[in-house]
């Protein structure tokens, strides 16, 4: 005996949302796969990038006139600082390593690991 339509309003609502989602996604994907969409969206992005480039270049000239550092200058300084910090940490690690080795031999427990002896479970008959 065939079951009648569900009386649960929540189930009907869920089905409706699911269908709506599928339909909108399918329609949007169809439109976004067109040359027009690709051309239009990229034109908009290129315009925004051109404005950003123009602003950055104009601002850099302005800041240089005022004898102030630009964002690029600060970023470059930050990069150099980071490189120096990384170099210092490597030196610190190299200096600390022998001391750490000594303390380990003095009895500091090394974290133990389980043995690598595990075998896969036998296949079911």
């Amino acid at each position: 005996m065939a079951e009648g339509p569900s009386k649960d309003p929540s189930a009907a609502w869920r089905e409706l949302v699911s269908q709506w989602e599928k339909n909108i996604n399918a329609l949007a994907n169809q439109n976004m796969a067109s040359d027009e969409f690709s051309s239009g969206s990229n034109q908009a992005m290129n315009l925004a990038l051109r404005i950003q480039q123009g602003m950055a270049s104009g601002m850099a000239t302005y800041l240089a006139t005022l004898n102030l550092p630009s964002r690029a200058d600060i970023t470059a300084l930050g990069e150099r600082l980071q490189a120096m910090e990384a170099y210092l940490s490597r030196i610190a690690v190299a200096l600390e390593e022998p001391a750490r080795g000594k303390s380990r031999t003095r009895g500091a427990p090394k974290r133990s690991r389980p043995p690598r002896t595990k075998q896969p479970p036998a296949p079911l008959p």
Binding site: M32, S41, N42, N46, Q52
Partner: peptide, 22 residues
């Protein structure tokens, strides 16, 4: 990957400008 390929179509997508700017 059709949509990604379409959106990054070399005729329209200026990847050099994007990377050089950002």
């Amino acid at each position: 990957m059709e949509l990604f390929a379409k959106w990054s179509d070399r005729r329209y997508f200026e990847v050099d400008r994007l990377v050089d700017t950002t």
